[in-house]
Amino acid sequence: METQKNKKEMFYPHVSVDCVLLGTNEDKLCVLLVERQVAGSDEKHYKLPGSLIYESEDLDTAAYRVLNEATGLKRVALKQFRSFGSPARTKNKEDVQWLENASKMKISRIVTVAYLALCKIGKKTTMDEKSDTLIWAPVNELPHLPFDHKEIIEAARQEIRDWVDREPGIVFDYLPPKFTAYQLRRIFEIVYDKEVDVRNFRKKMSTMEYIVQTDETETGVNHRAARYFRFDRIKYNKLHSNFNKI
């Protein structure tokens, strides 16, 4: 008779989860990828953190398990944002063969449920001990990825824009406590992948009561020192304003 543990260890071959972690690095929007071991290849191959689900687990539990196993991360707020179920997901025989070898199961059609999170690059995490198998790849310069992972990443990028449209306070979690107008503008340019007019952005900033100017300026810079600002979350929560799409 099978034990509950044995049941849990059985993968369900038709449903998987994939986790998309987006962060900004060197003025680029980047996605966290994990190394994928491909037999007989000396090249490094990458994919999104993802896996088949166990028969006994729900989707959210599977997503957090997969992310932790692949990256060591635990305290990341994942949000389910879309499912991908095209029959063409498994059209590449090499991708299917790799997954069959990894799961020890026969694979046919797979529906994947995608989860998304913004992750602050440089934040101290247990990812350090897995650094040899992880990379932050610019979303505009992705390596070859299996299945439809590039499509999933592009959908995640649009989803982040929708999030910021509805809840602009999100971006301040990925800025230092004190930031310049340039740093804030660059975050929006990176998210929306387009240049923002400096004057219009300054005007928009001035209407946002939760962006508070401080008495401090940059030090040790080779250009005119910029004024620092801070984000007042209490004011933001009271106003709950919408920062219209730039």
Rank of each mutant, 00 (worst) to 15 (best):
P146M: 07
L52P: 10
M105G: 01
F188H: 04
E151R: 15
L175G: 04
R166N: 07
P177V: 05
K93D: 04
P87T: 05
E94N: 12
V20Q: 04
T219Q: 12
K203L: 13
I187L: 04
N237C: 03
F231G: 06
T207M: 08
D95Q: 00
F81G: 00
K203M: 10
A181V: 04
E129M: 10
Q4Y: 03
C19M: 03
F147Q: 15
D18I: 00
I107M: 05
P49L: 01
L67M: 07
V198H: 09
E57M: 15
G169W: 02
T71L: 09
P13Q: 05
F201D: 06
L142G: 03
V196T: 13
E167A: 07
A181P: 02
T219E: 12
V221T: 14
D215R: 14
L32V: 05
A225E: 13
F231C: 03
N6E: 15
V15N: 14
E26R: 15
R89G: 06
C19D: 08
K124S: 08
H14Q: 14
T112E: 15
H149F: 10
L134H: 02
W98D: 04
K28H: 07
E154L: 08
A181E: 12
E129N: 10
K178E: 14
F229Y: 15
K47Y: 05
Q97N: 08
E26P: 02
E129G: 03
S131D: 12
M127S: 13
F188N: 01
I107D: 09
E43W: 00
K104R: 12
A226G: 02
Q37R: 13
R36I: 13
N68A: 02
N25P: 00
K235I: 15
E189H: 01
T24Y: 01
Y236W: 06
R199Q: 13
S41R: 15
A137L: 00
Y174D: 06
V221P: 07
P168D: 10
K245P: 01
I152F: 01
Q97I: 05
V196P: 05
G85S: 13
F147R: 15
M10F: 01
W163Q: 05
E55N: 10
F229Q: 03
Q158C: 03
E57F: 11
D162T: 08
V196F: 03
L73D: 10
E189C: 02
Y115K: 11
A102K: 09
F172N: 14
Y174L: 13
T207W: 00
A70H: 10
A181F: 03
I53V: 15
P146L: 06
S51H: 10
L48E: 12
